[in-house]
Simulated assay, not measured.
Amino acid sequence: MSIHPSAIVDEGATIGEGSRVWHFVHVCAGAHIGKGVSLGQNVFVGNKVEIGDRCKIQNNVSIYDNVTLEEGVFCGPSMVFTNVHNPRALVERKSEFRNTLVRRGATLGANCTVVCGVTIGEFAFVGAGAVVTRDVPAYALMVGVPARQKGWMSEHGEQIPLPLDGNGSFTCPHTGSHYRLNGRQMSREPSP
């Protein structure tokens, strides 16, 4: 594990083997961070945060209470999580934090916003600047404000050339992995 001297890691935080904590990071006491995680410059990690193994959190990202990132999540530079649905400076709402779950392998592009209370499916891809206001299916490509589904992505990070609705199959040219679309559900087929 590598922690830059300018970083603040509060006593009680757990950080897994092989993780790197860069300049001006603050990790709160209750945070749980897995193995092989990279926390870029100026990252904040709250008390009630779980970060899985091999996540990459780029510069200027704040991960507030009640956010869970499963293994291999990518958070692009300056992307935003929220944890209160209807914030007011004059109204205390810490008891109303909503849980946000980002499933394994998902990508959250630079400057996107994830409104609290949603689940982002595994290997989903949220484009730069998008605003996610509702649950995102596994492997979905989401863009725009508010975010709308514009396609499907492979685990390798390549767009799958299939219709949004209906049935179809695809083989990733980079990995040879097979994917199948059944209505509005994308899945990776087991290797033969």
Rank of each mutant, 00 (worst) to 15 (best):
I3G: 09
H4D: 13
P5M: 07
S6K: 04
A7E: 05
A7S: 02
I8K: 02
V9G: 02
E11G: 11
T14H: 13
T14R: 10
I15L: 00
I15Y: 05
G16Y: 05
E17Q: 14
E17T: 14
S19D: 02
S19Q: 05
H23Y: 15
H23N: 13
F24K: 13
H26Q: 12
C28M: 15
C28H: 13
G30E: 08
K35A: 14
G36L: 06
G40W: 12
G40D: 10
G40A: 10
Q41E: 12
N42A: 10
V43M: 08
V43K: 05
F44S: 10
V45F: 03
G46H: 03
G46R: 11
K48F: 14
K48A: 15
I51T: 05
R54Q: 12
C55Q: 01
K56M: 11
I57F: 03
Q58A: 06
N60T: 00
S62N: 11
Y64M: 10
Y64V: 03
E71W: 00
C75L: 15
G76Y: 00
P77W: 07
S78F: 09
M79K: 04
V80P: 06
T82Y: 01
V84Q: 12
H85F: 11
P87F: 06
V91D: 13
R93A: 11
F97R: 04
N99G: 12
T100F: 09
L101R: 12
R104Y: 12
G105S: 03
A106S: 04
A106C: 01
T107E: 00
L108M: 07
G109M: 03
A110V: 00
C112E: 01
C112N: 04
V114N: 02
V115P: 02
I120P: 06
G121C: 12
G121K: 09
F123R: 12
F123L: 10
A124W: 03
F125Y: 12
V126C: 01
G127V: 04
A130C: 08
A130N: 00
V131K: 07
V132Q: 01
D135Q: 10
D135S: 08
D135P: 07
V136F: 02
V136I: 13
P137A: 13
A138K: 07
A138V: 07
A138S: 14
Y139A: 02
A140G: 03
V143A: 09
V143M: 11
P146D: 09
P146R: 02
R148K: 14
M153F: 06
M153Y: 00
S154V: 06
H156L: 10
G157C: 13
G157Y: 04
E158V: 10
I160E: 09
L162R: 05
L164H: 06
D165I: 08
G166Y: 02
N167S: 14
N167M: 13
G168E: 01
S169W: 10
T171E: 14
T171N: 12
H178G: 11
Y179L: 09
R180L: 13
L181A: 09
G183R: 01
R184D: 13
R184A: 13
R188Q: 15
E189F: 12
